[in-house]
Simulated assay, not measured.
Amino acid sequence: MTGRVLRAFLLPAMLGLGALSLASASAAPAPARQAEPEQSPSAAQAGLKFGFYVGDEQQPTTSRVAKLGSDITFPQGRFDGTILGFTGRVPITGKLAIPPTSSYFVSFRFMPATGDVELIPDGDATGTVLVKTGAKGDCKAVGTSICADTDVTNKVFIKLSNVKVDGKVLDVGPNCRTAQSAAVNIKALVPLAFPAPPVKVTSTFSTPGFTGCGVREELSPLLTGLVAGPGNTLVTNLKLRCVGSGGPPNGCGA
């Protein structure tokens, strides 16, 4: 029984053109031109590309697993997205990419354990954004002339692999991950102009139950009971990398 409990502590885991009518070929007067439909923000603006580094030396991306009291630190990642308009609160879409990490912690205060943790995106990040202007007004907090009040949700599966306890391999199999994706919501005022300071953000999320864990024995229910639940946190710095479709170093174009 002790061996099974030890295994349970292994989980380190945890954004119209309107058509013109043709004139009649007859001698009859040409019909009046119909009014063109109003363009939507997405068509009129064609979207504003932007990109952020996720995590830096001052504040790397760190997730705390509430039930284990364990922190997981990830390498620097990226978020690349598009703002679909500028008038009012408009849609935003993007892709989050954070490299896997190897995590270390001590269970029962004496047993070293390691494992690889991977965040697998469940589709694109989605949400809304309100673009603001004014370095001394709405954007004063980030110190730039243009900024964005964002509300973005990233959905990720949490996958565990390469687990070892006291240096010995524990075979959790190749498909040990959360049965559903965890929804990590980030609300923050972020800069959209250079130079831009990093913005620290904190998000609280729930870890779903696990599935597919264990080859020789079923570990998923045990991991779910001891690890899954609310109150987990993710803290990181967002550092503006590029804005617009221009070329490098500050444009997001190719």
Rank of each mutant, 00 (worst) to 15 (best):
Thr87Leu: 10
Ala97Glu: 11
Asp116Gly: 00
Phe50Leu: 11
Gly51Pro: 09
Asn250Leu: 01
Gly214Asn: 09
Asp124Phe: 05
Asp149Val: 00
Phe79Gln: 12
Phe108Tyr: 10
Gly137Trp: 01
Gln34Leu: 13
Gly231Asp: 08
Cys176Asn: 06
Lys136Ser: 00
Ser107Phe: 08
Thr211Ile: 12
Arg109Glu: 05
Lys155Met: 00
Pro174His: 08
Ile83Glu: 11
Pro41Met: 14
Leu119Asp: 06
Leu6Val: 12
Gly88Arg: 08
Tyr53Met: 10
Leu130Ala: 05
Phe108Glu: 08
Gly173Pro: 03
Asp151Met: 01
Pro31Trp: 14
Gly244Ser: 07
Tyr104Thr: 11
Phe194Val: 00
Gly69Lys: 13
Pro37Ser: 15
Gly69Gln: 12
Arg89Gly: 05
Gly16Lys: 05
Leu226Lys: 07
Ala148Tyr: 00
Ile158Arg: 00
Ala66Asp: 11
Val65Lys: 11
Gln39Trp: 12
Thr133Pro: 00
Glu218Gln: 14
Pro208Glu: 11
Arg241Thr: 02
Thr82His: 07
Thr144Glu: 01
Gly229His: 11
Leu11Trp: 09
Thr233Asn: 10
Gly18Asn: 10
Ala46Pro: 04
Gly85Lys: 09
Thr204Cys: 03
Gly3Thr: 07
Pro197Val: 11
Cys213Trp: 08
Thr204Pro: 07
Ile72Gln: 12
Leu84Asp: 12
Val215Gln: 13
Asp116His: 02
Ala46Thr: 15
Gly173Cys: 04
Ala196His: 06
Val172Pro: 02
Ala25Gly: 09
Tyr104Trp: 03
Leu48Asp: 11
Val163His: 02
Cys147Phe: 01
Lys239Val: 10
Gly81Lys: 06
Arg177Glu: 13
Gly77Ala: 12
Pro100Lys: 09
Thr153Val: 10
Ser26Lys: 07
Phe9Trp: 06
Ala44Asp: 12
Phe9Gln: 00
Thr202Asn: 14
Thr178Ile: 05
Arg78Phe: 11
Lys155Gly: 02
Gly94Trp: 10
Pro99Phe: 09
Pro31Cys: 09
Thr93Val: 14
Pro249Lys: 02
Ser203Lys: 10
Gly143Pro: 00
Gly77Gln: 15
Asn185Ile: 05
Ile120Arg: 04
Glu118Met: 01
Thr87Val: 13
Gly51Trp: 09
Phe52Thr: 06
Leu10Glu: 11
Thr82Gly: 07
Pro60Met: 14
Pro99Ser: 03
Phe74Ile: 09
Ile120Met: 03
Leu22Trp: 12
Ile83Gln: 04
Pro195Ser: 07
Leu10Gln: 06
Lys200Arg: 13
Ala125Arg: 03
Pro248Trp: 08
Ala141His: 01
Arg33Ile: 11
